[in-house]
């Protein structure tokens, strides 16, 4: 339960913000441009559908990784810098609960990117046999991404 409260706070702090929305808008613009090029550019459209799908999935994974890193870098460093972590640690919530809450928010972020990219995957991979495999692969990969989080500052000390 306490984990849920931490996660809600994280989501409000980093996803439901102008900056968060900017990321998602940027992601859909880039995905739109990419898909448009794939489908209209004569050279690129020579690529077979599987290759196109593969390239666009790579892009989505890279985006997820990048955002995961930005998230992860700020998860604890940001709270230490703003002086808010200590009050959390004084509360009767253990460090694992805090860490899982933050991880949950990072995962939520990934799922948003995933949902945004679904329509593009369908358009680019339409009718192809690889589409479903690709989507499943992407879902699993992305879910593992936030595990690239930096380690938790178990022995909290401000330098």
């Amino acid at each position: 339960m306490k984990t849920t409260y931490i996660m809600q706070k994280e989501i409000r702090e980093s996803i439901l913000t102008p900056k968060g929305f900017l990321w998602y808008i940027l992601a859909s613009i880039i995905l739109s441009v990419l898909s448009y090029l794939f489908l209209t550019n004569s050279e690129l459209s020579l690529l077979d559908q599987g290759q196109m799908l593969y390239m666009i999935m790579n892009f989505i994974t890279a985006l997820g990784l990048l955002m995961g890193l930005v998230f992860g870098a700020d998860a604890f460093a940001g709270e230490i810098e703003r002086g808010t972590l200590e009050a959390l640690f004084i509360s009767p919530v253990n460090k694992t609960e805090i860490a899982i809450g933050k991880l949950g928010a990072a995962l939520t972020n990934w799922w948003i990117i995933f949902v945004i990219s679904l329509p593009y995957l369908f358009v680019v991979g339409k009718g192809g046999q690889n589409l479903l495999t690709g989507i499943v692969y992407l879902a699993i990969l992305g879910t593992l991404l936030p595990l690239s989080f930096p380690p938790f500052p178990w022995d909290f000390q401000r330098g």
């Binding site: 706070k9 002086g83 808010t84 200590e86 009050a87 959390l88 004084i90 509360s91």
Partner: peptide, 26 residues
């Protein structure tokens, strides 16, 4: 309980939300 030195706040919250958040942790 404690008020740390140079304590920071979730500045995007209202005072009510801030207390609500911490009270949930108890």
């Amino acid at each position: 309980n404690a008020l740390p030195e140079s304590n920071g706040y979730y500045e995007w919250m209202t005072a009510r939300e801030y207390l609500k958040f911490f009270s949930n942790l108890y």
